[in-house]
Design a protein around this nucleic acid. Sequence first.
DNA 1: GTGTTATTTAGAATATTATTCAAAATGTAT
DNA 2: ATACATTTTGAATAATATTCTAAATAACAC
Lengths: 158, 158
Amino acid sequence: MSETTYTLDHVDLTIIRLMQENARINNADIARELGMAPSAVLERVKKLEQKQVILQYNAKINPAAVNQKLLSFIFIKAADGIGCATTGQALAAIPEVQEVHDIAGDDGYLVKVRTADASALVELMRNSFAKIPNIISTRTTIVLETVKEQQQVLIPQN
Amino acid sequence: MSETTYTLDHVDLTIIRLMQENARINNADIARELGMAPSAVLERVKKLEQKQVILQYNAKINPAAVNQKLLSFIFIKAADGIGCATTGQALAAIPEVQEVHDIAGDDGYLVKVRTADASALVELMRNSFAKIPNIISTRTTIVLETVKEQQQVLIPQN
DNA sequence: GTGTTATTTAGAATATTATTCAAAATGTAT
DNA sequence: ATACATTTTGAATAATATTCTAAATAACAC
């Protein structure tokens, strides 16, 4: 047990909903919202962490503040065999790469990358991407403006 | 003052680095790492929040645990005029839409969407996307497997 | 350089919050 | 209904955040 099938009740869902919006909310505030004791909330949170429902708590940093102003998506065609994840792994190892998705269609990956600017992107592609053997081709899409970017998932009400 | 240009020193960067990985880290632990007093760390954190360097604290929820197993990227071609952000706004208003990026090239948006499954995606496109006037065409890419998905930004060492 | 002012930090005191734990309550299965 | 397991409560305790004043440091004018 303990991984895929863990049924979340109303209490769990409320906790998740609140913590998604503010990971530093305290147990008393959650407890108030739910009409239960803080210690019980703590138990729930611990269980949610253990069951890997809550994966991590992270601070969302303004990319511009740390000089990562350019966001790009890169489609990568790879010569990997079926089920061979080498290229994906190599891409994931690059710190500037935030996301690597194996996509349906043309044996490809969709990669999300943050760099300071266009020249830093070029440099990254020359230095890091070019070193990955199985990459056949890349197609880069530059983001002009991000209208919305949230990590939060839609939580059912129940 | 207070928005774009706020220079981050070594202390700020260390705080950011630690909080990115664990938003619930306590001030004493940060202080220990930095060799300074917890109260001083608190001041720094407050300032980083105020300056919008730290934007939010959020819990990363396992999408599968809340029945959002399908991740898709959708390219959307829109008939918006230059600088007209209506379509982007409309897309951003959809709860299943996690990201909306205005991309260079073909007057388009790249949208990241989470749904329970393929039929829920179809339903979402019929019900929500189809109601947005300026959308000319869409091209959907289904994610088979996510190799990496992090929100964390690369922090310079300084 | 000196003096002046503003900003940051340290450290102790206090307020909040997390955590523990035993007992009560609730749920589950037989 | 009984037995067993799980969850919750509420009070006690531990840990942490927060406040505040004085000291230290930095920034700046002269």
